[in-house]
């Protein structure tokens, strides 16, 4: 019997709301609304906020600003939270930020070994691999090997520093500014900064 026949047999196409996790989430949502715990309009605005206002472009503009303004860069490395907030990138999971700088001697990479703590206001929501057990466990045990698998081959003389984010503090990597970019303005520099560059699994 084809899927189409099967649907005809049952008289309708199954709506995902009828079963499993989707149904359970809807039940929780309806209970939370009925009990006055959440406002339905607030639910919609939160999702809109994360879809439109957060994302790695925010982090890229922070990086480009730091590359072009040494005073801002000093501030960013000294007090990442305040410097990032000054650019308007505030919000949940961005309250306590620390920015770590890649140098010729040190390469930084971030992880959350326990779950998926991540600086949402500057990097958006984490990619699937960041949340997966393979990355979370292996990047601490064998960082060079994992970075090689990402296509990043670091000199053996360069130290690899892994930063484990927690509920209390989130990390972001300040990549090294590529050579031959002197003629680029802030917007052009931001365009070459990648999400993975700010996680530390790629160079820029």
């Amino acid at each position: 019997m084809s899927d189409q026949d099967n649907d005809h047999f049952h008289g309708h196409v199954h709506d995902p709301i009828e079963e499993g996790a989707a149904l359970r989430v809807r039940a929780l949502e309806e209970l939370a609304i009925a009990k006055g715990l959440v406002d339905p309009a607030a639910l919609e605005s939160v999702i809109e906020y994360y879809e439109r206002e957060t994302g790695p472009r925010n982090g890229a503009s922070v990086v480009a600003h730091a590359w072009t303004d040494p005073t801002f860069k000093d501030w960013l490395l000294r007090d990442g939270t305040a410097a990032i907030h000054s650019m308007g990138f505030k919000g949940y999971q961005g309250e306590h930020m620390r920015v770590v700088e890649n140098t010729p001697d040190v390469h930084n990479v971030i992880v959350c070994t326990l779950c998926s703590c991540y600086p949402w206001p500057v990097l958006g929501l984490p990619p699937a691999w960041y949340k997966g057990p393979a990355y979370r466990s292996r990047i601490v045990r064998e960082p060079r090997k994992v970075l090689t698998e990402f296509g990043l081959n670091l000199s053996k003389h360069r130290k690899v520093q892994v930063w484990d984010s927690t509920a209390e503090i989130r990390f972001m990597v300040l990549p090294q500014r590529p050579e031959n970019t002197d003629g680029l303005n802030v917007e052009e520099l931001a365009a070459i900064v990648t999400r993975d560059g700010m996680i530390g699994t790629a160079s820029v």
């Binding site: 995902p16 996790a21 989707a22 989430v25 809807r26 929780l28 949502e29 939370a32 959440v38 639910l43 939160v46 999702i47 994360y50 879809e51 790695p56 958006g124 929501l125 990619p127 699937a128 691999w129 997966g132 393979a134 990355y135 292996r138 994992v146 698998e149 990402f150 990648t194 999400r195 993975d196 699994t201």
Partner: peptide, 24 residues
């Protein structure tokens, strides 16, 4: 092969209920 496929353009949420439980 030991790491998941990597993409900078993957969807923010793969399923509607992922977005809903996250938002809640």
């Amino acid at each position: 092969a030991t790491l998941p496929r990597r993409s900078e353009t993957e969807p923010l949420f793969r399923k509607d209920w992922h977005a809903r439980v996250f938002t809640l």
